[in-house]
Design a protein around this nucleic acid. Structure first.
Length: 224
DNA sequence: GAACCGATTGCCT
DNA sequence: GGCAATCGGTTCG
């Protein structure tokens, strides 16, 4: 599948907006990665689930304690990749939002595989397609993303492209409000009920069920 | 310099 | 549904 069919690369102005808006608008967009270790082999997926992590007012955000060495990147330029390591074995991938100087990032939680499933499966130890990219640590493994990718620019060719490879986000197809499900966030204690998780309703590629959820286009909450 | 925690997953019961 | 694995970042002394 040619990369051109995924649309234009999203411009930096796309990310220079409130983190919640960026998270909602990222649904349906396409992550495309060609790692230096696997030249010419594209792995791509459509974003079906993501979460917004805000600034100092959000106790679940790495930016909560200010611009520490790890979190400083969240205070910087939008459209930059923020990769962190957790649980001693997993990598998670975020894209920095808000204008330069304001903290915020969107955690990519699940992708629908679009290209490069064979390579993704190799990296994932031959796991079934259903579990290839459905989960924040699963998708980084499938894409070959680790700490070396922290700071990569998803808007354009990175200076470090030769060392690590290239990652871009393309426009794909915007998801309509009626398809967007909003719910509480996953895997955190503080502020887990803040409605900052966004997913594509009915997608079989979402990582896990919702504690509670609401469709954007309808009023009120759907039950558990 | 050391202790503690974690934006998770996979395997076990 | 429960829990071990495994190590960087943060915090505290």
């Amino acid at each position: 599948m040619p990369a051109a069919s995924f649309g234009r690369i999203l411009p930096r102005s796309f990310y220079a907006r409130p983190t919640e808006v960026v998270a909602r608008e990222l649904l349906g967009r396409v992550v495309a990665v060609v790692a230096a270790g696997a030249p010419g082999r594209l792995v791509a997926g459509r974003i079906v689930e993501c979460e917004a992590y805000l600034g100092r007012q959000d106790p679940a955000s790495h930016a909560f304690r200010g611009p520490t060495k790890r979190a400083a990147i969240m205070f910087g330029r939008p459209g930059i990749l923020y990769v962190y390591f957790t649980y001693g074995m997993h990598h998670c991938m975020n894209v920095v939002a808000e204008r330069d100087g304001e903290p915020g990032a969107v955690l990519i939680r699940a992708l629908e595989p679009l290209a490069g499933q064979a390579l993704a499966r190799e990296r994932r130890g031959g796991r079934a397609d259903a579990a290839l990219m459905a989960g924040p640590a699963r998708l980084t493994q499938a894409l070959g993303i680790d700490l070396a990718w922290n700071g990569a620019d998803v808007c354009a060719t990175s200076r470090r492209r030769e060392a690590i490879g290239a990652i871009v986000l393309r426009e794909g197809r915007r998801v309509a409000d009626a398809e967007v499900v909003r719910s509480g966030r996953i895997g955190i204690r503080e502020a887990a009920d803040w409605p900052l998780r966004f997913s594509v309703g009915g997608s079989p590629h979402v990582s896990r069920p919702h504690p509670w959820a609401a469709r954007l286009a309808t009023a009120g909450r759907a039950g558990r």
